[in-house]
């Protein structure tokens, strides 16, 4: 007997139930029902909540009027931190005029030598101060991962309350899941040497969020 069949047989013996078809139908019904567990009460100010949480997770936050102003504010941030003027960007941001702000950008997946990565995000979650990034040709996952500095553009209109809300938005706008959904909450960290928290374990040391009102 194959391992698969043997394991499933052991499982069935343990459960001791017949009626596979009926139980399968019940499982399908449960999935279709999408019942949510206890939900947090977040109040009306999702933007304020998101900013407070993101800052408490060691991200820095600034606000701009609209997406078009992104290159200028990125240039300002990089100059203030002496972080150079080169960056890798998610191809979805390639339409912006980066050169006008004195930045030289490459739209592609990131490589090791990239020091700054700039992405958008699918949506942001107020409950935990989290970004949701989807992988894809226009949004490679490595741009938010390999560089030491990750700058993310967040559309204020796409700040939702909870992870459940993010999943609902995803189902409404995409048929199926991309290869990777990455929920990102601040810079990477470790506490593995004597329980001392250090930022920048393997991923970015620095996460800067730029919130655009439109």
């Amino acid at each position: 007997m194959s391992s698969r069949d043997e394991i499933l047989q052991r499982v069935r013996a343990g459960i001791g139930l017949g009626d596979a078809a009926g139980r399968r139908a019940a499982a399908e019904a449960w999935m279709a029902g999408r019942r949510c567990g206890p939900q947090p009460f977040l109040g009306g100010d999702l933007l304020g909540r998101f900013v407070a949480r993101a800052e408490s997770l060691s991200s820095s936050v600034e606000r701009i009027a609209g997406r078009r102003s992104l290159p200028a504010s990125v240039a300002g941030f990089l100059a203030a931190g002496q972080l150079g003027s080169a960056a890798v960007i998610a191809p979805e941001l390639a339409d912006l005029d980066w050169a006008a702000s004195g930045l030289s950008v490459a739209a592609r997946p990131a490589v090791d030598r990239d020091t700054v990565g700039i992405t958008g995000c699918f949506c942001a979650i107020a409950e935990t101060g989290t970004l949701l990034l989807l992988s894809g040709a226009q949004t490679p996952a490595s741009v938010s991962l390999l560089p030491e500095t990750h700058i993310a553009l967040v559309d204020e209109r796409r700040i939702v309350g909870t992870m459940e809300d993010a999943f609902a938005l995803l189902r409404a706008e995409h048929g199926s899941l991309p290869r990777a959904l990455n929920f990102v909450s601040g810079p990477s960290r470790t506490g593995d040497i004597e329980q001392t928290i250090v930022l920048g374990a393997h991923g970015p040391r620095r996460v800067h969020l730029i919130l655009a009102a439109a």
Partner: peptide, 8 residues
């Protein structure tokens, strides 16, 4: 946690 990934 800082990173939560769903891989499909």
């Amino acid at each position: 946690s800082n990173y939560v990934s769903l891989l499909t």
